[in-house]
């Protein structure tokens, strides 16, 4: 009787050296992209781009975006989606400003009100998604409209710039140790989110719930509570971003948060390419926000038209993601 020969899996047809280079490119796509961007804009406008002033300006501009994107990272790590992020940013900032402007509320209380609004919105979303089993995509799409509606009812769609306390404005405009206070706040939040996701039981449970909900439930993890907590964190992050934003401009203008929604997603997804298994991490999101901020500032400095900036920005984003996908396919 003949025996059946055993064959190993077919080998992909590439040399080890090439696949190692591809591996490095894929693994470090984001840091490489940041270096390339700095080198590119630095060589185009060395006098303006490669300055401490510009570096701090990039960081300051990126701070509110970073906070919002970090909250979103938590939701994405759990395998959920939050489209109400932009509206929660707008509502959080507008509520704090309105409280001061209309009622003369002391600024710390106004901040607490703004944070509470963001957290409450997250809690409501989380409860609907988790307890009633609704799809987070459509629920948060509805919540986006609801929250924007609340903001507009409050502000009448006017820009509010009177009656804002100096202490509040100082949040966005004072410097500590050579950096804007917002940068320190955003950095602190980044550390907190990193610690939450990597070093706590909750974070482990969140990743587990996103990766393999059945396994997480069977292992006895409190998956429902964690999911709700994730949405609350995203709501809080959005509210903080809204407060930082209004403090930076010393005003609350209508629907200010919407412009942050898609860049926040871009940052989180781009950041997920920084981990070897495509996981959403705080660290990756920080890198991605830097990258997007650097490109935005650089493109403005080389005085491209708005259309060209938009085009190049999109192309760079796609390019960075594709770079990280290099070599993934042949591994399948």
């Amino acid at each position: 009787m003949t025996t059946v020969e055993t064959r190993g899996p077919a080998l992909a047809g590439s040399t080890p050296a090439l696949s190692r280079v591809i591996g490095i490119l894929q693994r470090y796509a984001l840091p490489i992209a940041i270096l390339l961007a700095v080198a590119l804009f630095g060589s185009l406008r060395p006098d303006a781009f490669l300055t401490w002033r510009n570096a701090t300006a990039v960081l300051t501009l990126a701070a509110p975006m970073l906070v919002a994107a970090l909250g979103l990272t938590v939701v994405l790590a759990m395998g959920e989606i939050d489209l109400s992020l932009g509206s929660a940013i707008g509502l959080g900032g507008a509520l704090a400003v309105c409280a001061m402007s209309f009622f003369g509320t002391p600024w710390p209380v106004a901040i607490v009100l703004g944070l509470a609004a963001g957290a409450a919105a997250g809690l409501l979303t989380g409860a609907m998604v988790v307890r009633l089993g609704a799809n987070s995509l459509i629920i948060t799409l509805g919540m986006a409209s609801v929250l924007t509606g609340v903001e507009f009812l409050m502000t009448d769609q006017r820009t509010i710039y009177t009656g804002i306390a100096q202490g509040y404005i100082a949040l966005g405009q004072s410097e500590v140790l050579g950096l804007n206070l917002q940068v320190w706040i955003a950095g602190l939040i980044a550390i907190c989110v990193h610690a939450l996701l990597w070093h706590t039981e909750w974070g482990r449970g969140m990743y587990a719930a996103g990766e393999n909900p059945e396994a997480a439930i069977l292992a006895g993890l409190p998956v429902s509570a964690l999911r709700i907590a994730g949405f609350v964190i995203a709501g809080l992050g959005a509210a903080i971003a809204g407060i930082l934003l209004t403090a930076q401009t010393a005003s609350a203008f209508s629907n200010a948060g919407q412009a942050f929604l898609l860049p926040a997603y871009a940052a989180a997804f781009l950041g997920s390419t920084a981990s070897s298994d495509g996981r959403f991490t705080a660290f990756g999101t920080v890198l991605a926000v830097f990258f997007i901020g650097i490109v935005q500032t650089g493109l403005t400095m080389v005085q491209l038209s708005t259309g060209a900036i938009s085009l190049v920005q999109g192309a760079l984003l796609i390019g960075a993601v594709l770079l990280s996908r290099l070599g993934r396919k042949e591994r399948r």
Binding site: R204, A208, E211, N212, E214, A215, A216, L221, D277, R279
Partner: peptide, 22 residues
């Protein structure tokens, strides 16, 4: 659980993390 890949392992964790997950 029966379906190890579907119900058992939690891929983002390392081996120790999988052992101590519960």
């Amino acid at each position: 659980p029966e379906d190890r890949r579907g119900l058992g392992i939690i891929a983002p964790f390392d081996l120790a993390g999988n052992i101590t997950a519960a």
